[in-house]
Amino acid sequence: MKHFDVYRIISASLRTGVILSMASVISGIVIIMVKGGADGYTLAQIASYSKSQTLYSSLIPLNNLFTGMYQLDGAFYVAFGLWVLIFTPITVVVIALMSFIETRNRLYIALSSCVLFVLFFAMLVVPHFLS
């Protein structure tokens, strides 16, 4: 494999992530405004700050993310955009890991795997215990 410029790739992937995410969030908000609601919630409820009325993250069923997007439900576009944003920095660690594998830097392969392990632990294991 040819040596790749890790800085350039990181910079490009961060930019792509932010742009994709912002585009999805903005289109989601526009759809919500146009349709006057999303995911069974009215516009007034979505814009409310009250915890008992409003639509917040854990109420959005992520299992239906793509069906929701297919049905042009704005909430799912915002959710998709926010998750793209959450995953954007993680790709940086993956790219760094790949560059360490390429240079066979054992210590840093271990350290970046460790970071990825904690990240996936936080995303997949911890939420299980929250509900």
């Binding site: 979505i46 639509l55 917040y56 854990s58 909430a75 959450i86 936080a122 911890v126």
Partner: peptide, 19 residues
Amino acid sequence: ATGSSIYWYSGYIQIFIAA
């Protein structure tokens, strides 16, 4: 990003405000 998923599943991200 690490904290975000825990926040997400705890319902601390109100999509209108966060967007």
